[in-house]
Amino acid sequence: MTAFRTVVLEHFRRPRNRGPLADAHASAEGANPLCGDRIRVQLRTDHGVISDVGFTADACAVCIASASVLTEHVRGMRLDDARSVDVTWIHRSLEGAPPPGRARCAQLPLETMHRALDMLHGAT
């Protein structure tokens, strides 16, 4: 089994930060319309820092693993730093890029988190 698959399956079986976040300051939902992945990312902030983060998803293993590593990474991070997280970082964390045709699965949580961050930006 490749390192990528090992990491993805481990996070899929034990996703970090999965579940709705009470009293979230921002919540965004994203979907891959053709494959059907759906994810909601929720953030709580405190003085410009992500104090808590959670996600809810009806999504494939790659998407859930991506959300899991991403939310672990950004908890405690300054908002501006979280905005600069990109898909290369996701691939590195998953120890590889997804196979052809699955790139959107890994990207969706990141795009959704960025939209949640934009909502916070709009609110301030």
Binding site: G36, D37, A57, C60, A61, C63
Partner: peptide, 11 residues
């Protein structure tokens, strides 16, 4: 009947 664990497991 989605035949897709992404729906099956959460449901």
């Amino acid at each position: 009947v989605a035949h897709d664990y992404k729906y099956e497991l959460p449901v």
